[in-house]
Design a binder for these strands. Sequence first.
DNA 1: CCATTAATAGGCG
DNA 2: CGCCTATTAATGG
Length: 222
Amino acid sequence: MTTHNETACLMRAKLFAPLPAAARAQLGQVAVHRQFFPRGSVIRQPGEAAAGMLVIDDGQAKVTQLAETGKERVLVVLTTGDVLGQEFLFSAEPPRDFVTAVTDTWVCGIRRHDFQALLTKTPALALTMLNDFGQQLLATEKTLVRRDLLSAQERLLAYLTDLSATQGRAQVTLPVKKKELASLLSVTPETLSRQLAALVKRGAISVTGRQITVHDGNPGRL
DNA sequence: CCATTAATAGGCG
DNA sequence: CGCCTATTAATGG
């Protein structure tokens, strides 16, 4: 897409934004740079070795888990600047999830040993990681609470409101197929379709394919 | 075009 | 609300 120097790739991760320049430069040294994954290809899958942490340099990817029945469960959708697999910086366990490119995607990464070597020399890095784990925990908590406490319609609207906030505008684009969004929200595709229609009728949103406009209102803050 | 796949509609538990 | 089926729309070759 655009230019790309040693540190740029990893620094696209919002995670590392607070780091001092020196630490970022060092990270750039040990990073794995710019691997390309065409839309639909598998970036990571269960059982792979030496997983490490990944940064979405450009593109979108979904994290899924496969049920016994063969049906896939969408856990999260990642976009440019998002990070995944922080836990593999600290553990040599193989991944349990699939990561699939939803669009053409470029990915960077850091291997566990490289990261840990750097960690011992750079206290700021440790703090940054701890903060990130904390954020991650809060995010997980939020999705759990939503799933258990909110109705399907409330969950959907909460999701859309979040998306609108992160994309920075009222008109948002669904990052994945509605079928997958349904999985992410723990509802069936039929229910998602109905609740979308209900929200439209209520005047909370308007829908054109994957383009959705969130009209201001009182979404509820969960 | 045709063949899949995705999305919606309707019925039912 | 989930599951099932029928119908229609979108997509890809």
